[in-house]
Structures are given as C-alpha cells and as structure tokens.
Design a protein around this nucleic acid. Structure first.
Lengths: 115, 115
DNA sequence: AGGGTATATTGATGGCTATCAATATAAGGA
DNA sequence: TCCTTATATTGATAGCCATCAATATACCCT
C-alpha cells in the first residue's frame, strides 16, 4: 500500500510559473469593467430594469420612479450612455433613453467565457 | 393631409403613471448587485479570469499574478466568496479557490432577462 | 426677442472602498 | 513546545463616487 505523500508545495512548479506569467487583455477588460461598473449601482441597475420593460423612456419618467434629484438621474444616465449600454435620443425638449440591446448581448456573451 | 400634431407631453399619461408606480424586487436586486459589485473591480475581474483557466488555484499563486500585497488579495477573495461566485477549500496550510460555476451561470441567466 | 420647461453640467461634500502595515490565526515540521 | 510558512483580520488612510444645490444649455411657444 502506497504511503500518502505529503505535499511540500501548494501546486506544481509549472502551474505556479504559468499563473505568475499570466498577462491580461487590458483593453478588453477595461471595456468590460466600464460596463460592470455601470451595472453595479442600485439606481443604475433599476434604471436598466425599467428600460427593459419599455421600448424607450423619457428622462422625466425615469426620474419619477426614484426618490432622487434630477441631476443625479442625469448623472447615472450619462454613465450608462458612456458604458454603451443605453442609447439617448433627443426629440424636441425631451430625451428618450433605451437599452442598447446589441451591446448588452455582447457584454453578456463576454461573461459567458468564464463559465 | 393631416397636420402634424405637436406633442404637449413626453409620453402617454398611462405610461408615465405605470413607470412612476414601478416597484422593484429589492431582495433579488440586492443579490444581483452584490455579484455585480464583486465583478466591478479590476483586480477581482482578473482573479475570476485566472480561475476560469484552472480547476482551482492556491492563494499564493493568485498573489503572484498581481503587484498587490497579500492582505489585499485576501480581501478581494473574501468579497468574491461572499458574493458566492468563488469557493474556498482549505487543504493543510493552503487555501484553494475555484469558480462557483453554477452560481455564475445563475447570475448570467439573471442578466439575460434584460435582453 | 422673451419666457418657460426639460435636460445637462459644475462644484461641493459625505460615505464607501482599495490598499497597506501590523497583527492574528492556522497548520505542519523539528 | 517552538519555529516557520500560509492565510486571514484589523486599523488607518487616500482616492473615488453618489448625491445635492446651483447654474447652464437646449428647445419650444408666444
């Protein structure tokens, strides 16, 4: 019967070396991180859910769903815009926001490579 | 020929009212937000990518892939653990981390309802 | 042109968090 | 038991960001 060998290092040297040498695709990760940061806020996540139930919504309607000042909502919409996951269209005095579904789909697919 | 009517409000009253009345599933959203917050950090995102390429990794190996102190990596691993997207197993002196793939899958599916 | 409404921007501020240094805990070997 | 190594926790701090008040801009109507 073989005696159980006690490991004297946590992993094989080759694995340790390979992990230590890992280089990341920084540009791709920066994009992904921008979207993730846009998602990772209670208000913005709720805005996205709001938009998912409608073709598009006017800013004043979005405002009405929250107990937050108008500049705050405008700030969040800007972050969502800059992350590329919502679109904004001006019609007269009003601005209409909608999900950028293709970009969202790309983003979710990007996460799936982790699985 | 019909004269173009100028809108005097941004949307239909019924839509505006419905949006204003929107109630969110706060508990579900809190879970989702915890995972999103765990994702939305450069170091943690990279840790997840590292883990995705291996069955499991020892903490000291993860440390070696970053220019950060050991307590900082330990802090990030804790956040990932508490979000439920990685698992930790102690074997002797070492701790091995791995992706919690089922939880990740659930999370990604949760995002897909937005599409 | 002037006034009113909708949205965006700016500036200030409090709270959160990524990081580190120091310390604590856990486990194994002598 | 003592020492060493691996990991976790604690405490302190600097930088970031969500929020608001004030202001600016854009657009429409008269």
């Amino acid at each position: 019967m073989a005696t159980a060998t006690i490991a004297r290092s946590c992993c094989t040297p080759s694995c340790t070396e390979e992990v230590a040498r890992t280089r990341f695709d920084d540009e791709r990760l920066a994009d992904q991180e921008r979207v993730l940061t846009a998602f990772a806020d209670p208000t913005r996540l709720r805005i996205l859910y709001l938009l998912s139930g409608h073709d598009s919504l006017c800013v004043c309607e979005i405002e009405a769903a929250f107990d937050l000042g108008q500049p705050t909502i405008s700030h969040h919409l800007k972050i969502l815009r800059e992350a590329g996951i919502v679109t904004a269209e001006r019609r007269g005095t009003w601005a209409y926001y909608a999900l950028a579904r293709p970009a969202l789909k790309t983003f979710v697919s990007g996460l799936e490579v982790l699985l």
